[in-house]
């Protein structure tokens, strides 16, 4: 007779423990020690596949969430509104600069849309997803079940950040596509005039839009790092979102004060607008490169802060 059966017996009749047994002071029944390790050891799974599965689940959560869908829709509508507005205003000759250039070329709407959105609306949507990432789960209590699953803290944080980065790129691509389609419908297609006064072909114009998407997306990914880091400090996601936006606005204010000019090169918004480097001839690769370095520095710093905080945090929610 196996020990397990004895145990089952005992368990099924808890009231009928022999007196001799009840008098013992040992902490467990002598017969209860199980024989050897259990057979049902989980098979060593492929960690990479499991990582993608969790990321997939995270992406599904993000992109199926109505709130996030609404944000993407709003962002997609802005280039449309700008395009229509410029189309109506196209009669007046007076407009110069980037805005004036849209009337002459459909591709320019993409750059104009970015110049409008990159400073506030895109950061808001990235801050919402990034700020909600950890704090939202903590607030809802689902974080404790994810970690008990066990998702692994470093692994979960990596998935959360990657998800925010992918959302940042989704935001950027949505804006670019909406602007591109609106531009093609409303304005003439043709060679693109750059800020430097020279002209490039439509194909090269599209290539430059692609470079812009890559660059602006990286800038938003840097903001996502801040948002995720702040998200690990609170259980209230709106707090992390608001804190991120406060930082963005403070940076804009600093940029507007001439006495604080020396701080500008260290601020993200300064570099977000530097995508105008693609509109110069030749492309100002030095500016783009330096911007990417700044984004990389922000990502490195804030991801490591998020990691230090999250791996050491007591989950009491």
């Amino acid at each position: 007779m196996s020990t397990a059966e004895t145990e089952v017996d005992v368990r099924r009749t808890p009231g009928l423990v022999p007196v001799t047994e009840t008098m013992r002071t040992v902490e467990r029944e002598p017969g209860a020690a199980p024989a050897g390790p259990p057979a049902a050891a989980p098979p060593p799974s492929r960690p990479v596949a499991a990582f993608w599965r969790l990321l997939g689940s995270e992406l599904g959560l993000t992109f199926r969430r109505p709130r996030n869908q609404v944000m993407l829709a709003v962002l997609a509508s802005v280039p449309l509104l700008i395009g229509i507005g410029l189309r109506i205003a196209a009669g007046d000759e007076a407009v110069g600069g980037l805005i004036g250039a849209v009337a002459g070329n459909s591709l320019m709407l993409t750059f104009v849309s970015f110049s409008f959105l990159v400073l506030l609306l895109m950061p808001v949507s990235v801050a919402v997803v990034g700020g909600d990432s950890v704090a939202g789960e903590a607030g809802a209590g689902t974080l404790r079940y994810l970690l008990a699953a066990p998702a692994g803290r470093t692994r979960l944080l990596a998935v959360k950040y990657l998800n925010a980065v992918l959302f940042a790129y989704a935001v950027t691509i949505v804006v670019a596509l909406s602007a591109l389609v609106t531009g093609l419908v409303l304005f003439p297609v043709g060679p693109v005039t750059l800020l430097s006064g020279s002209t490039v072909s439509v194909a090269e114009g599209l290539l430059r839009i692609l470079v812009t998407v890559g660059y602006v997306g990286a800038g938003m990914a840097a903001l996502a790092a801040i948002a995720v880091a702040l998200s690990t400090f609170t259980e209230v996601s709106i707090g992390a979102i608001a804190a991120t936006m406060v930082l963005v606005i403070v940076a804009q204010v600093i940029r507007a004060i001439p006495q604080l000019d020396f701080l500008a090169p260290y601020l993200l918004p300064t570099w977000w607008t530097r995508f105008d480097a693609v509109l110069r001839s030749p492309i100002d690769l030095a500016a783009l490169g330096q911007g990417l370095l700044v984004f990389g520095a922000y990502i490195g710093l804030f991801c490591s802060i998020a990691w230090a905080r999250f791996t050491g945090k007591d989950i009491t929610s």
Binding site: G97, L98, S115, L195, S196, T273, D276, L279, R280, D284
Partner: peptide, 10 residues
């Protein structure tokens, strides 16, 4: 070239 934000003089 003197580049400024979204503008340039040459």
């Amino acid at each position: 070239a003197m580049p400024t934000q979204f503008d340039e003089t040459n």
